[in-house]
Design a protein around this nucleic acid. Sequence first.
DNA 1: GAGTGGTCTAGACCACTCC
DNA 2: GAGTGGTCTAGACCACTCT
Lengths: 248, 248
Amino acid sequence: MGSGPAYQRVADEIRAAILSGELAQGDRMPSLPELATRFGVTTTVAHNAVNVLRGEGLVVTRQGAGAYVRRFERIRRSSPGRLARSHWGQGRAIQDHDTGVRARVLGVVVGEVPAPEYVAAALGVDSGTAVLSRARRFEVDGRPVQLATSYLPLELVRGTAITYTDTGPGGAYARLAELGFAPVRFVERLTDRAPNQQEREQLALSSGAGARVIEITRFAYDGSDRCVEVTRMVLDATAYELEYEFLA
Amino acid sequence: MGSGPAYQRVADEIRAAILSGELAQGDRMPSLPELATRFGVTTTVAHNAVNVLRGEGLVVTRQGAGAYVRRFERIRRSSPGRLARSHWGQGRAIQDHDTGVRARVLGVVVGEVPAPEYVAAALGVDSGTAVLSRARRFEVDGRPVQLATSYLPLELVRGTAITYTDTGPGGAYARLAELGFAPVRFVERLTDRAPNQQEREQLALSSGAGARVIEITRFAYDGSDRCVEVTRMVLDATAYELEYEFLA
DNA sequence: GAGTGGTCTAGACCACTCC
DNA sequence: GAGTGGTCTAGACCACTCT
């Protein structure tokens, strides 16, 4: 046996079974008592082992229903390809570029909110000034994978389709372009962190240690280098592969 | 008190104490028995709570020595700024851009290795063909934060300073430029995942669930769109903030 | 109701550091 | 040697699903 802790050894063996295909994607895992018996440990140790795998994104658990091998196919999110004008200029939604037809946008909520500090600083308004907020959630194959909230200056978008739930073909960027504020430069800042409770619920992440999200804050600038939009996204860290292309 | 599990409530209170500054960065945490007594739980539950915070990167533990509030200052890693020719063209190392003078490069190991599949595919050689490998480790303030291994085609770099431990001013990219293969375009792919055992050791990450790394694979292309270098980096996920800038 | 995952107790032993 | 974090046992109860 490995010299490490028992729960690591158990996790190692299960992981190997998953990666070798012995346990296929979507398969139900043996129950905790079964694992305990098979590996000669207590159910607590078996639980620890499953926890490790859950943290790695290999296993998802549903209380009362069982543990399952995760259907594993990361979504590739490509930048700047997904934000290129050639893309949304053709009337397609940005997330189409990442996820094909499997993606759905849910729970779009549009409203006016006081600008958070980092938004106010970027948009050049006083902190707390009302800005347009567009919140939504992305699901792929019925699984929530991303939360996103965009903030735009009210004087730019008032009375336009950007204030509607459905912004029309090409999305908000196409509307900004029609207004003469087409975004041409982007800055994205990424941090990897633990989700808060609300994010755990909305992204259906398990509690306990291990679950991670990637927080992306994007700043969009128009041709005169004015920041016209700030978007904060929270991604299920195990659901994505991010790609960036740039010139030296 | 909160309706959730006890270990979450304990973690919540400690987290609040850290974020409010009541527990300062670098402070020693109360011991597990102390926490257990204070919150009326067992040491096991106190341990679970500390585990949660460890996973969030707020606390670091040293077996036998205690648990400490992490000194927390994420390293900002900016692209393409850090890879711009204007930077390494002046003879500065790339990591200077991210971390200032606090960074150190350790354990540089140069050698010839069979190309991993993803490297061979990018460099346009057969899988297993010998390529130059440059492995190294980055430390900031004495703490290991990143592992990196670069792969370059042997026929490009044989007999050049790139095969030395010290590649000279401006690093490998400056040498590639002198050879007429200056990298001008980059693609970086990022995934969040759990570290393997070797990575846990080299990055001084705790075992158990919770620790995460960001794996970045970078492909560097020269002016004729030939891939001249592949670099795989493994970052302590809680140590970095990544920034990307690009045009639509 | 039976089975499942999630949490918890009240101990125990080990490896490690040196407060 | 005392104190610490890390692991583990052998139970228990709860919330949940329905395999």
